[in-house]
């Protein structure tokens, strides 16, 4: 396998924002986010995270301060659990990053609630839990180190609709507490509902960057099939074919219903 995993990508992700990254399987989304906490290093170019710089020469040592700042929830993160109790597993990250035993314990107690499981889960073995509960424990384990930026690689894959919504709301709440969220997803409705900014990847390149509203209105990206539309926008297009006119393309259900109401009542 030769070729570049990433080619000539330049972008800035603002702190405190919810940025979604979309693109076909194999378009370089995962490769890109792995550069943000130096799991991969660039062959050329630099990545700046706060006051940390990652260059091709970056040493593999002393990456801990950076990795403490950038938490990462991988696809199917439940596969990273290994301790004999949920509590120990959540404490694992914080302790690696220099939390004291007591601080790590406090973080575990706090985070188990944040992910919607009660304190009674702390003493259980993670391997006795259901898949969805294991996922939450793994997420708690990442949040417990109190990262400033949280990278999510399809965190809701394989969950049922209720679980999906709860997990997405959880991350939205984290953003409201001041965290920067970077979400890799295939779900355009999640993009429309949660993201402030949208990045579109294709063939290892960044082909689109803007607000979801801007990107979903980008005809070139749509025609080239680099992205698809959220359900509300698809529905709005069908209405437009039947004579409806929209002032702007609605991408969420509330935008859609607002536009329809205006159309029906309006003059």
């Amino acid at each position: 396998m030769s070729g570049l995993g990433l080619a000539d990508v330049s972008c800035t992700i603002e702190s405190g924002q919810f940025t979604a990254i979309v693109g076909k399987t194999g378009s370089g989304k995962s490769t890109m986010v792995k550069h943000i906490n130096a799991l991969l290093k660039p062959t050329s170019g630099t990545i700046t995270v706060g006051d940390h710089q990652i260059t091709p020469e970056t040493d593999n040592k002393n990456l801990k301060p950076l990795r403490k700042k950038v938490g990462m929830v991988f696809q199917f993160p439940e596969s990273q659990l290994f301790e004999d109790t949920v509590e120990k597993d959540i404490m694992f990250g914080p302790k690696n990053f220099g939390f004291t035993e007591a601080e790590a314990k406090a973080a575990a107690e706090k985070m188990i609630e944040v992910v919607g499981l009660g304190p009674e889960y702390l003493k259980k073995s993670p391997f006795d839990l259901s898949g969805g509960q294991m996922r939450r424990v793994a997420i708690a384990g990442v949040l417990a180190s109190d990262p400033e930026t949280i990278i999510l690689d399809e965190p809701t894959a394989g969950l049922d609709p209720v679980g999906r919504k709860e997990i997405m709301d959880l991350f939205k709440a984290q953003q409201q507490k001041g965290k920067t969220i970077i979400l890799i997803t295939h779900n355009m409705d999640d993009v429309a509902n949660y993201a402030d900014k949208l990045m579109v990847m294709h063939d290892s390149r960044l082909v689109g960057l803007g607000t979801p509203q801007e990107i979903f209105n980008d005809h070139e990206l749509l025609e080239k099939n680099y992205i698809s539309l959220p359900q509300s926008a698809i529905f709005a297009e069908k209405l437009a074919d039947k004579g409806f006119t929209f002032s702007k393309l609605p991408i969420t259900i509330s935008e859609l219903t607002a536009e329809i109401k205006e159309q029906i009542h309006g003059d």
Partner: peptide, 19 residues
Amino acid sequence: DETTKIMDAQRARGVDFGE
């Protein structure tokens, strides 16, 4: 593949394999 993925996940949680 699985090993690489798990190693990445644990490195992200602050494990340093060469230390």
